[in-house]
């Protein structure tokens, strides 16, 4: 099984992965509008300017975050 990994040193804090993640959108619809999720059940969130995994157990490994991340800060391996 692949695992969702983040590298906070690479992260720009742009939050593209947070809004692109289809799981996040279904858990917390407001992320689609670019507002921060209101629950820690989402897969990942930007906290203090960098990406942080919250409930990565919810990740379905669709690869969308990796596809959109501009700097290899989030990936599956």
């Amino acid at each position: 099984m692949m695992e969702l990994k983040v590298n906070q040193d690479n992260c720009l804090g742009c939050g593209v992965c947070v809004v692109a993640c289809p799981v996040n959108v279904s858990i917390s619809p407001e992320v689609a509008g670019g507002h921060g999720p209101k629950t820690e059940e989402v897969v990942m969130m930007v906290e203090n300017g960098v990406i942080k995994l919250f409930t990565d157990a919810n990740c379905t490994k669709c690869g969308t975050c990796q596809l959109f991340c501009p700097v290899d800060a989030i990936w599956l391996e």
């Binding site: 099984m1 692949m2 490994k61 669709c62 690869g63 969308t64 990796q66 599956l76 391996e77």
Partner: peptide, 16 residues
Amino acid sequence: IELGDIGAIVRNEADV
């Protein structure tokens, strides 16, 4: 048999 994480493998051309 275990199906891999097809979405991540195909979309990001993972070597898996």
